[in-house]
């Protein structure tokens, strides 16, 4: 079974993951994705009717710390990597309405 992932689907997925792509990229991704997904279809051979999905890597308890407030990274340190900041806050582009 060869499943074709057309450029329209590629562009739709690109938008879902907020990836700007050109028409040329959509074209080459379409071919590559079809080949890769086709390879994944190999798993259809395996009978997993009675097999539960893996949910943890190691059979062990999660280590949880006490749920108590602790000092976190100082605000000025956090903001050192922010593309834009203002008055101690990360500045983002307008999300709602006009500026």
């Amino acid at each position: 079974m060869t499943q074709i992932i057309d450029t329209k689907t590629v562009k739709h997925v690109a938008f879902l993951v907020r990836m700007g792509i050109s028409d040329g990229e959509a074209q080459s991704f379409s071919q590559q994705f079809s080949a890769i997904i086709d390879f994944f279809n190999l798993l259809n051979e395996v009978d997993t009717h009675d097999t539960p999905p893996a949910t943890q890597v190691i059979h062990a308890n999660m280590v949880l710390r006490e749920d108590a407030a602790q000092p976190s990274m100082p605000r000025e340190d956090f903001l050192k990597n922010a593309p834009e900041s203002e008055e101690g806050y990360v500045k983002v582009s307008t999300v709602l309405g006009e500026e």
Binding site: I37, F40, L43, N44, V46, T48, T51, P52, P53, A54, T55
Partner: peptide, 11 residues
Amino acid sequence: YYLKAQKVRTL
């Protein structure tokens, strides 16, 4: 795909 892979992961 994803769920199938997690099942085969168990195997």
